[in-house]
Structure formats: structure tokens, C-alpha cells
Design a protein around this nucleic acid. Structure first.
Lengths: 210, 210, 210, 210
DNA sequence: GATGAATGAGGATTCATTCAT
DNA sequence: AATGAATGAATCCTCATTCAT
């Protein structure tokens, strides 16, 4: 059992450093335009030597991908996990959108990273689009949504929510902004006004804390 | 030869070189991510010496602003100017949106530059937002649009149309995509389905050529 | 278990690892230009951890020296060992040269290492020069060789044989090339043509296999 | 005539800097093992900024090639040119070898560069081998040389002269060493002793100074 | 006004070496 | 004795910017 134990200690440390680097990179990506981020920024934030970075990532792209993958994980666990039980697609989408925007308000770092790399980094945007698409199709099948073009709808939902997030992060404070956006999007999907309002403003379950 | 004439010739030449540089930069910005554009790219495209660039612009930001300003001018003259006569805000907005998307399909270079710098570069983003806002407010005033939050609506229109443009530029081809998007946005602004459809698919005046 | 036994096991293991590292380094030196060899290359070839290398060698120079020393040993045992019994200096030299070149043809790895580090690494080149010099002086004393300058002769023998080895390794295939070279060198040392030919082409004892 | 004059001034300056860099690189290559030469070494020697180097060469290989090309030019002009009038291949080869070795004694910098890059760097090695081969073939055709294998002879001449040069550069001082080497090589090519001696020690024309 | 050579700060990357486990 | 994470010096390379002609 000696070697496996030894190895597992090494592994743990390695994993810890890797996570630490990803978290540091994440904080840096929140502060700066993606292309302006240097590896020096990241190692300074992590308090680690230059060479250490290269023990874990080959390139800046690499670490960007890792950050995106980690965000995608978090999102899956925190945002979408919770509505396993909900069957109404309109309600599912509403919860997703609101969590998304609330999370950005609660944690601006998270928000900025999403706005900056959300659309660029493959794994994240794919995760989002896939989830969105499945809810959308379910809604159409169940005649909850009424849309002419699925692609147009995807553009609307994604475009609007990212833009709303940006607006929020830039300091716009309007009461219930996430709910306003949610209601607006639901209506665009063909949900009637009162229904949309009821769903968008329905009490949310508390967000799972870290 | 009168000195003033000499001067005016110089002026003309100066203006010509400046425009040439702006157009070259514009083509380069269409090809590459904003931060990836180097001054070398621009002077290579313009076929001009390195020093010449600095006779006209102090920094890279400078030329970006100039490109944005030039786009903004064109937009004011071509798009906004065109519907001076139209009074229905829904129709105005529909024409604006469609022109916008059609132009991107016609001229991918233009499209990519708008997607890349439309929201970031100063004079351009202001022109866009101002135009959008004035139509929006007119529509609300005249009870053509029914919205709860103006900001939410701005986010929806901008976000959706930029995302749609991106989709188009990436090769999505769906018949009447600009019209689908326009109809969807009009409905989101509270215009009834049939009305939105009629407006979104109404024949367009030909776009003024250069 | 007796401590001395324990110690001797440790010693054996230590020796085994050391040899393993030297052999791995040797294979790497055969593949790459000396200065291009990294310690990573060596440990990857050996399948051993980075730290292990430093348990045996202080620096890269160190391992280079060790490889050279090991080559020198092999050479002494395999090539020169066999002509203890031969007294004619011309024949001794002929056998040495031919073994040298035949070995390079048989084992290109060995050949490349010799060509690459043969002249740089001290212990090897000294071994070679010492052997060469003693045969040369014997030949002169016995009036088998007729030369004006010993140094010039050393340069000729060493330079020609290394260059011939390089030529061979680069793929030149001419029947009996080692013998041609040997005959040429013998003639340069003052041996008559027919005599040189006879010696250079005389049947060789089989090479001692590993 | 203005622009062409302007351009030609620029060209001259450019050419001057380029030559300056090549000469500096040349001096550095004489001091260090090829792979140990850094671009910093070169720019320090040239007293020029880091970026300047990259205005002229893309890579270290590039500058090596340029140095080799320049050496090859000089060689063609100075050494080969000199014996346009000499028809005896033995004499031609003797003059070539002696010039070669004398030049190394006179100018150690030159010698070291030749020893280091003579066989590796493209245009230089070709010039050397071509010159050698043409004399060799002429000698064989005219029955001045008597050899069994051309390749073996090339290896002998190149190997011996490079090794002799190295010996000289390392401080070996023997009177008439270039001549001893030349005589030895001529004899190896089948020239009779007295003849070889006469040719190898014949008075040399003074070497054309720069 | 146009040119392009020269500059050097900034950032990326490699790799020998140390050291705690 | 073996391991491999961490280190940081050394080097490479790019590119915005200056300036003399």
C-alpha cells in the first residue's frame, strides 16, 4: 500500500495546485478582456512560479478551456441540477434564466467570466445551448411555446440573456430585473402575459450555497 | 500657384490617405479578433509604410475609433436617413432591423466588424443605441409597443439582433431569417402576431448603393 | 537480514539504475545533437522520475562523461582486447580501424554516439588517441610505417576514420568500405600497396557478441 | 531621381546593418559551440537592439546560413580564384590545402568557424565539397592521382584537413605543419614522395589581403 | 507627407535544478 | 532510493512606437 498511498498524496497535491491555478485564472479573466490576460497575471494571482504554470497547462488557450469546463460543471450542478423535478418547460426555462442572472448579480466575478468567455469557449457554450435547445423543443412539443423558427428563438434567448447580464454587471439596478427579462423572454416564446408574469415572479428556492 | 491652393491639395491628399488607412483597418478588423489586429496587419493591407500610420493615428485605439466613427456616419446617412418619412415606430424598427441583417448577409465584412466592435467602440455603439432608444420610446408613447421595462427591451433588441447576425455570418441559412427575427422582436415588443408578420415581411425599398 | 547483505542489495540496485540511465542517455545521444539533449529526454527514455536522475548525476555534462567512459570501456574490451596477440603494428591498426567501422555499420546507434561525442568528450578521445599513438610509435620503431610527422599522421588516421564513419552512417554503401578506408590509411602510413591490400582485406575474426 | 535616391540610401543602410550582424554572428560562432550561441550573444556583439536582429533574420538557423554563405563567397573569390591559372591538379589541391591551413593559423576566428560549421552549414559545405571533388576528379582523369575509391579519398582529404586545423587551433606548433599535412595527403592520393614534397613545400604566392 | 530602420518593453516558453515526501 | 511538484533563470519572439532622412 506504500506506493499507492505515496502516489495518491502526489495526485492530491497536483489536483490542488491545478484547481488553484484554474481559480486564479478565473478571477483574472473576470477582471480583464480575455486577450489581455497574460500568464504572468495568472501566476501572480496564484502566487506561484512561472514554470509551475507550464507544469499544468501548455498554453493560455488551455487554461481558458479549463476555466470554461469548470464553469460548465458548476453551472450544471448548481443551476440545472435543481430543476430535475420540474416538468413544465416554461417554468424550467424561467428558473434557469433567473438563476443565471441572479448568480451574476450575487457574484460579479462569475458574471464577467460568463460574459467574456461564455460565447467563445466551446465547452461552456455547448453545454448552455444543448440545455436550452432541449427545453425549447420540449416546450414546442407540448404546445407551451409557439415559435416560427427555432434558431431565431435560440438567438433571442441567448442574446437577450447575455445582454441583460452585461447590463446588470455594468451597474444597472432595476428591481426584479432578472424577472423582467424572464417575463419578456417567456412572452416572446408565446406564453401569455399573465402566465409569464406568474411564472417569472414565482418564489425561487434558495440557491445552494458553496 | 497660390499657397492656399497648394495647401488644399495637401489637405485632399491627407484626407485620401487617412480614408485609405481607415478602410484598410476596417477590412482587417473584419478578419481578426479586435485584440489580435496588429498595426503591421493594417499597414500591410494599406500598402503603406509603418511611419505613415503614425502620421494619422497615435495608437491602435485611435484607428479603432476612427473605423467606428466612419461606420456610424454611414449608418446615420444610409439607414436612419431612409426612414425619415415613416411614422409608425413598429415599421421604422422593422425596417432598421431588416436593413441591418440584410446588410450583414450582403456584406460579411461589414457584418463581422459590427459584431466585433458594434458594442465596444464608442461612436458606433452610441449611434446604435440612440437610434434604437428613440424608436422604442416613440413606440411606447404612441402605445404601439407595450413593455414593462425599457432597459429589458433594449437588451432584447440588441442582444437578439447581434446574436442573429452572428448566426447568419457563421453560415446559418434559413429563408427570410431577417424577417423571422424581426417578427419575433416585434411580437416581444407587444405587437400582435398578424400585425408583426405583415410588417416584418412587407416589401423593402432597395438599399441605397454606394 | 544482515545489514551488510541489505547494503549490498542496495548497491546492486544502485548500480543497476545507474547503468540503466547511462544506456538510456546513450540511446538519446545517438538520436539528437549533443546540445539538444535534455534531461527530460533521458528520463523519458529511462522511464524514471526526474529526481532519480539527480541521485546519480549532478549535471548533464556528468552523464555525457559517463556515457563516454562506458563507450571507452566497451571499445577497450571489444575492439582492442582481441589483438593482444598480434604483433605487426600494421595489422593491429588495420584490425582496429575495420572493427571500428564495422561496428558502426552493425550498430548505427553506437556509430552516431561516437561521431557526436567522440571528439568532444575527453575520456573517449584520450583512450582512442593513446591506443593509436602507441601502435603508431611501434610501427615507426619497427620501420613498418614511414612518416615525417607523428602529429600529422594522428590527424590523418583520426580525421579520416571519423569522416568515413560519418559517411557510412549517412547511408553511403560501397562494398568493403571499411577495407577501402583501411587500405588507404595504411598506404598513407607508408605501407606498400599490395601489402596494404592484403592486410586490409584479410579475413577478420568474428566479432565478440554481447 | 528623388525617390530612387532615397530608396538607395535606405538600401545601403539596410545592407550595412545586415553585414554588421553577420560579421558579429561570425565572431560569436568562432567563440562558442554552434548550439550554445544565443541571439543575445549576437546582438551584444553587434551593439544593436534585440528587435533589430529580427528585422533581418527570422531564426538562429537563418543567421548561421547567412554566415556560411558569406564565408562561401569569400572562399570562392579568394581561394578558388587564385589558382585559375594552375593546371596540375596536385598543385591545385596543394595550394588549396595550404591556403586553408595557413588562413586558420593567421586568423583563428576564421579557423574556428570553419571547423564548427564547415561541414554542417549548407552553402559553405557545398562549396568546399564541390571544389574538392572537381580537383579530385581532374587528378584522377589525368592520372595524377591513383585512388581505388573516390568517396574514401574525399573522406581522407576532408577529415584530415579539418582535424589538422583543429590541432593547429588548439595550439600545436610544428614548423611547416600545413606543408606536412599537404605532403601526407598528396602521397595518400598516389603522388610519389619526392614529387609530393616538392609540391607541398613550393613557395606560395602571398594571400590576397582584404 | 512618406518612409522604414531601430528600438526595447512585454510576454511566452523551456529546462536544469532543488527539495519535501 | 525514488519520486515529481515547484522553481526561476535564460532565452526566444512580437509589436507598438520613435525618429532621422
Amino acid at each position: 500500500m506504500k506506493p499507492s498511498r505515496r502516489a495518491s498524496i502526489g495526485m492530491e497535491k497536483r489536483e490542488r495546485t491545478r484547481s488553484h491555478l484554474i481559480e486564479s485564472a478565473y478571477r483574472v479573466f473576470a477582471r480583464k478582456e480575455t486577450d489581455a490576460v497574460t500568464i504572468d497575471d495568472i501566476i501572480a494571482e496564484a502566487g506561484v512560479a512561472r514554470g509551475t504554470f507550464y507544469n499544468y497547462f501548455q498554453t493560455r488557450e488551455d487554461v481558458l478551456r479549463a476555466v470554461a469546463a469548470s464553469l460548465s460543471d458548476v453551472m450544471n450542478q448548481k443551476i440545472w441540477a435543481q430543476y430535475a423535478a420540474i416538468s413544465d418547460p416554461a417554468e424550467r426555462m424561467a428558473i434557469g434564466l433567473r438563476q443565471f442572472l441572479h448568480q451574476a448579480m450575487r457574484d460579479a466575478t462569475w458574471g464577467w467570466v460568463i460574459v467574456r468567455i461564455g460565447l467563445v469557449a466551446a465547452p461552456l457554450s455547448e453545454t448552455i445551448e444543448r440545455g436550452l435547445l432541449s427545453d425549447l423543443e420540449a416546450g414546442i412539443r407540448l404546445e407551451r411555446f409557439h415559435v416560427d423558427s427555432v434558431q431565431a428563438t435560440v438567438d433571442l434567448v441567448l442574446g437577450t440573456s447575455l445582454m441583460a447580464m452585461r447590463t446588470t454587471l455594468k451597474g444597472h439596478t432595476e428591481p426584479n430585473y432578472p424577472e423582467q427579462i424572464t417575463k419578456l423572454i417567456l412572452k416572446s416564446l408565446g406564453v401569455h402575459n399573465d402566465d409569464a408574469e406568474a411564472i417569472a415572479f414565482k418564489a425561487l428556492e434558495p440557491f445552494p450555497e458553496e
